[in-house]
Design a protein around this nucleic acid. Structure first.
Lengths: 334, 334
DNA sequence: TTGAAAGCGTTACCAG
DNA sequence: CTGGTAACGCTTTCAA
């Protein structure tokens, strides 16, 4: 099972390896015609032989010689997180149609792993990087910038002029959530958030506050914080207290908070939505199955993935404009 | 921003490139000592210089020369499917500790895409492949076998002696589900399945039937089929009919069937678990949040991922034994 | 429109 | 222990 090289094809087709290289790299125009300076018949013969022999370009060699690799890398904190998994899916899809291969990796939120990952990944001469930065990765990202590798940030922001960005308008998401509940006639609307110091949370809080103020409910607005490691208990306690104070509704700005919210409702014997109404975030079977279904705000994962690749490929191509994209989330209510 | 090569390191350290190559490839033994024939001090100096210059091995060159790539590929039908996403996560983790990089791709269940994927992936000289084969991919997998690339099948089986396999004992899963319901005193226990001709389904059905027969309930056993594209309606109709016939409980052998099951319950006004009991499969927030929580059977995703890599690395190393692994699912009930 | 030849940065071999 | 040197398979001038 010897590997077929460009040389084998050349010999078999009776041409030089240069020609084979030309043909194999030629793009097809809209008519399916080979767009290169090689004689049509020669090209056809080469293609024929290559197919018959089962030739496959050796990426390593191509990459070594050309410096390009037709490879992108994606680093998220955890590819098992459905939000990121779905984004990756669309990234992969979009990259695929431009003939790019994608390497994905999870940083585990650990700077050390992120560091080693970067090392490995850059060994592969990736042409570009898409990252959902975890808190504390600023210095690692700086190292990335130092290599001049085009990089697009998604989901979370980090300072740096050279980055491309595909973000979601979280201020508006928080605002939409609040306005939806206000529209249903609720007044005492509060929010449970995490105290992680991540921009997406503070933005959602900000949007919520803005909407409350705009509706003249500013004095009733209240953001409570749960700790990430002890969501369950924290939410139960927050709800207990909230019931005493006659809170009508909560905004739960992540899926994990929402799930904790429903569990808390169960354990406290509070009825959704009559005793306590919700607007949740992200997607969960629970939102659909519940009777009535739960209003929730969904991030445009598909667009995030697609735009991220688009922006990245533009950066790789050296274009300067259009590096910043802001997307809108969508509310699903009745 | 010139790239630092092995040559730069050699010059700076005053040694030959050969030596640098030796040092950079040396593994560290348990004492953190370099395990190679190079002089300790020289090695230390080289390492020092490499770090100072920010040297990173050029994978493309290494791979071209050595034929090895330290890269594995994973192909599932859809990496956004949480089941696969989680497996991928563990694959990545496990590969990582053995210094392997992972390329992941989704076949979309389309043979054509799978085909192009294989082409691309093999261009990268991957050393091994982990695949969750979609129905109809037998011929593509045959092409893979032809290249002599070690390949491990997960989740679904396909004929072929050369494959490694990491499977879950679905017969036993079906059996466990049935026995759990029998243990709760139910008699009229039925199952809703898909008619996709995939081994995991037929195995779960088989296990269910076995358990029913063993309990003397063989005559009550009944497997109904829903179509994949119209689950919602099909399940509603199946449940309507089941209620008439006094069915106590259903086994729902996938998450999508389970979700459809709960929706159907809602729309028909049937109460879980008093009117109708369930054993579901996979993981969902619904199972946890529901009051009482829903018994469900979870596949050992972590072990699947870890074992798959382990088996694959063994195959790459040329070991012949231990290519087949059978794992057990676990039931979460009260 | 075609071909010869020079590398790309490593590793592997062989000689010292 | 150390170093010289020939590949690896491809892309990319440059020349014909």
């Amino acid at each position: 099972m010897k590997k077929i090289t460009i040389r084998d094809v050349a010999r078999e087709a009776g041409v030089s390896i240069t020609l084979v290289s030309f043909v194999m790299n030629a793009k097809r125009d809209e008519n399916g015609q080979l767009d290169c300076c090689v004689n049509k018949d020669t090209a056809k013969r080469v293609l024929e032989v290559a197919r018959r022999l089962g030739y496959r370009r050796n990426q390593a060699a191509a990459s070594l010689r050309s410096g390009r690799s037709k490879t992108l890398a994606v680093i998220t904190s955890d590819i098992a997180n459905p939000f990121f998994a779905e984004i990756c899916r669309y990234i992969e899809n979009t990259a695929y149609v431009s003939d790019y291969t994608v390497i994905m990796a999870s940083s585990d939120e650990k700077a050390e792993k992120m560091d080693k990952l970067i090392d490995t990944i850059f060994g592969y001469n990736v042409e570009g990087l898409i990252v959902a930065p975890s808190p504390g990765s600023e210095n690692v990202l700086q190292r990335v910038l130092d290599t001049n590798t085009p990089t697009v940030l998604i989901d979370r922001d980090v300072k740096g002029d050279a980055f491309g960005r595909v973000m979601v308008d979280n201020v508006n998401s928080g605002c939409m959530a609040a306005e939806y509940l206000i529209g249903k006639g609720h007044k005492k609307i509060e929010m449970v958030s995490y105290d992680l110091g991540i921009s997406s949370f503070s933005d959602r809080e900000k949007g919520y506050m803005n909407a409350m103020k705009k509706a003249g409910l500013g004095s009733l607005a209240n953001v409570r914080c749960a700790s990430y490691d002890n969501v369950g208990n924290d939410v139960v306690n927050i709800f207990k207290d909230a019931v005493k104070r006659g809170v009508d509704a909560f905004i739960l700005p992540t899926k994990s908070l929402s799930v904790a919210g429903f569990k808390a409702l169960n354990s406290l014997g509070i009825k959704y939505p009559d005793d306590m109404d919700f607007v949740c975030f992200d997607e969960s079977d629970v939102y659909e199955i519940n009777e009535p279904p739960v209003a929730h705000i969904v991030q445009p994962v598909r667009e995030i993935g697609e735009k991220a690749v688009e922006v990245l490929l533009n950066m790789i191509a050296g274009k300067k404009e259009g590096k910043d994209v802001m997307l809108q989330a969508k509310l699903f209510g009745e």
